[in-house]
Nucleic acid binder design. Structure first.
Lengths: 346, 346
DNA sequence: TTGTAAGCGTTATCAG
DNA sequence: CTGATAACGCTTACAA
């Protein structure tokens, strides 16, 4: 209830939170538009002294433009939605981190969107809602979306920043390369009976299904019998059961392509526990190239994957979207970024 | 230019992208404010028929309120910033996913903010900028921020959704419990010489430092010599070198508390490679309870950590922040969520 | 070189 | 029960 006039006079002094462009304008003795122009790089053709005053005032007030206001008038935000699939790829954390760092440098914030149970349609619907609401500057898809989905999104004015995978018979190049490399490696090492090991419990794993199909193709090409699919849980007992069934069905030796490194470890140690020779009776190759596989004995053979290379592709996508430049040259993942890391399990 | 009046009548037909509340209002034959009220649950005291018409129109147009507009008028967005530390905790991916799912259900989107090199101050500055720009509905801190930082942020009107860790001599309860459990377990198993194994290369790992300090405290309490700190890289050769040095300095047996499960694996397999007995000459315990540690032989002893429990705490924080209710009862991580998972390395 | 004014889509307040 | 109207903070023609 104090009616001291000073209360009123004291209220609007430099307070960090919530300084608006109007405040900056007032302090600098210019208009809001001038502030906006100058702070958005339209520095040329403004009196040097004005630029100084504005920048100074902004700094003094700790002025940060509100994303809301910006987004409203621009029609899109400075957010990028990262669509993360329910995949068995091991590196997701690193990938997210790398992408976030990259986009952060460019002034974007990353909104994560994980696939969840409920099926592809439900996940797409959730994504769509996020896109409608947030009007993001773009989407980076880690494999959650089909080409159709990507097209739809793009038609709605939401740029796709990740490279559009080139599908061959429903399998994108990356998974094709991975699975083919796995299968060929196993065959090279002398295995004539192959199997594909899914990670159990990941209810929807499109990547896994694609890769299993590719392994089957490679077998067919090589005149080998079709691979057996097994589901491996990430516990020792369950893995042993799964492997036991496989050995009973296919005999030995058998080469097993695994959906990721953890499954690879589960399989190789299960084999050892069952007194099978690794390699020899059982050959195992994973995907991911994470460190764990290389720490244990026997070291896991695996497919390495250059995170930074694929992230670089995305960075280029962003640049393209900003500059309005059409995606130039080759936005494809070059196949040679998938390499066999020879361990002791094949 | 065609002047067919139908052109005008035909223009506003149901087009998905960019329907505004004005469009809905027009189609429903009401005003924008009515639309807003009804769509925000103020259904009571509106003519049932009006409610129907509005909902119908909204559905028909695929109307989704713009986050930008909302944020602008509300002064805060429906985003939640997730501050992720540069920690050695293994589960980060799962934690992020769980939190994102939780917040998604509540209508929030998650913006990830990873700590990066450059020091705590730089990271805080980046975070601060994000907060200023986005005016998020809240922050979930996974351990990146100090109590001071949290207070500052909250003063600026950004609710802290994660439980504020209770620090005892600079160490929060969680890390205290983890490290203490590790140390006491090793001592229980008969080790009288202890060591703490950091993950090398994680330039800033506040968690690791805290835990090493706690292990030292426990040693002191038990009248044991101070633990030795070692830095373990995630490759076999490097880990062997590090362990070799340790054994030379401390002799055998030695019990090693590791900053995470991967380091634990590196240490145990390095010990085996050096022909040390595990357990016996070398005891190893990790943190994380991830599946990998339990897949290999010898199974890693570790500290398990109930992700869902801690996420539940955050959910309660959100509820509190929305309801405006003061955080009730006990927002603390109950200590008993950290349990020893007895493997074969201690 | 700088200022004026309009409008982005939403919500809150208050009047009818 | 419903509707004007006024912000919210920003950008951007266009005018001076």
């Amino acid at each position: 209830m104090s009616q001291d006039p000073e209360d009123v006079a004291v209220l609007p002094p430099p307070r960090r939170p919530g300084a608006t462009s109007a405040d900056v304008a007032r302090l600098a003795g210019v208009s809001r538009s001038t502030v906006s122009h100058i702070l958005n790089g339209q520095v040329t053709r403004f009196a040097e002294e004005t630029v100084g005053r504005v920048r100074d005032a902004a700094a003094r007030l700790g002025y940060v433009p509100s994303a809301a206001g910006r987004s409203l008038v621009l029609g899109r935000s400075d957010l990028v939605v990262l669509a993360v699939p329910n995949t068995t790829l091991t590196n997701v954390q690193d990938i997210i981190e790398a992408i976030a760092a990259d986009l952060d440098d460019l002034g974007y914030s990353v909104v994560v969107h994980f696939d969840r149970g409920g099926g592809a349609a439900a996940n797409l619907a959730r994504l769509q809602h996020v896109v409608d609401t947030l009007r993001p500057a773009g989407i980076v898809d880690l494999g959650s979306l089909s080409l159709r989905d990507l097209d739809t999104l793009e038609e709605q004015g939401c740029p796709i920043l990740s490279p559009r995978p080139r599908h061959v018979r429903g399998v994108d190049e990356g998974n094709l390369a991975i699975a083919r490399t796995q299968a060929e490696h196993l065959i090279d090492r002398g295995y004539t009976a192959l199997a594909y090991a899914f990670l159990v419990d990941h209810r929807d794993d499109p990547f896994g299904r694609m890769r299993a199909a590719v392994v089957a193709d490679v077998c067919a090409e090589a005149g080998l019998p079709a691979p057996t699919a097994i589901s491996v849980p990430l516990d020792a007992a369950g893995a042993q059961t799964a492997l036991c069934d496989l050995l009973r069905a296919r005999g030995r030796p058998v080469g097993i392509a695994c959906s990721n490194d953890e499954v690879g470890l589960a399989v190789s140690f299960a084999a050892l526990a069952l007194r099978a020779a690794v390699p020899g009776d059982v050959g195992v190759i994973g995907v991911g190239g994470g460190s764990v596989g290389q720490l244990v004995a026997p070291r896991l053979s695996t497919i390495t994957f250059d995170v930074r290379a694929s992230v670089g592709t995305i960075r280029r996508g962003v640049a393209a979207a900003r500059g309005g430049v059409a995606e130039d040259d080759d936005p494809t993942l070059s196949p040679e970024i998938f390499l066999v890391l020879q361990g002791e399990t094949t």
